[in-house]
Amino acid sequence: MDKTNPLRRALARLVGHAITLFARFITAVRADWRGIEPVRRQRVYFANHTSNGDMPMIWSVLPPALRRDTRPVAAADYWLRNRLRAFVGAEVFRAVLIDRRPEARSEDPMAKIIAALDEGASLIIFPEGNRNMGTNPLLPFKAGLYNIGRAHPRVDLVPAWIANLNTIMPKGEVIPLPLICTVTFGAPLHIGEGEDKDAFLARAAAALLALAPRQSGGAA
């Protein structure tokens, strides 16, 4: 597989456009830049995770110039399962693929994430680690976000709330429902002087949760 093949890169761009168009057609997905401006800065967007559609949604609402700089952090066991996924994950989204299974991996996932930041990329991460299937709006965050903030203290950590996707494409359903999805970006966070891991993760989770819209439609 030659990733520098221009035809292959053109195909990857085309598939990327198709994904954003499909996301717009089904969900009219829209960004609400509440706490930041959509400008090119190195950022780590951290979002709630309820559906496999979450990452493509954030990716679709980023303006193209920002999207080119931004790489999602995603699970290798999901994105390498077949050749199509390997193409979409690695070449369309240019994901930083990490292995969630400690026994199977050869590299330290945090080292891969830090390496991507060293190269200047912005990242999309889901600090809950897994898709949230319960009734709690957020699962406890894993330590990754804190470690990123410690290693790259100047990078903005931006909370991004994805609304409605658990209704649009819940686990176990095949057809996505065309309902409106909004991604709300909050004000950037940085780890405070002497702030410990638990305090920072609690503050980050609260900042993310504060962006969630009031549930008016009832059962979500």
């Binding site: 009219a28 819940p170 359903e173 057809i175 429902l177 309902l179 409106i180 008016s216 439609g217 059962a219």
Partner: peptide, 27 residues
């Protein structure tokens, strides 16, 4: 109609049990 229904049903009460019924309405 599609765009209007999408806006309307975004705000109405529903649960995952309605997923197929709502897909039937749209598609």
């Amino acid at each position: 109609s599609f765009a209007a229904l999408r806006e309307f049903l975004t705000l109405t009460a529903k649960s995952q049990a309605d997923h197929i019924a709502l897909a039937t309405a749209f598609f």
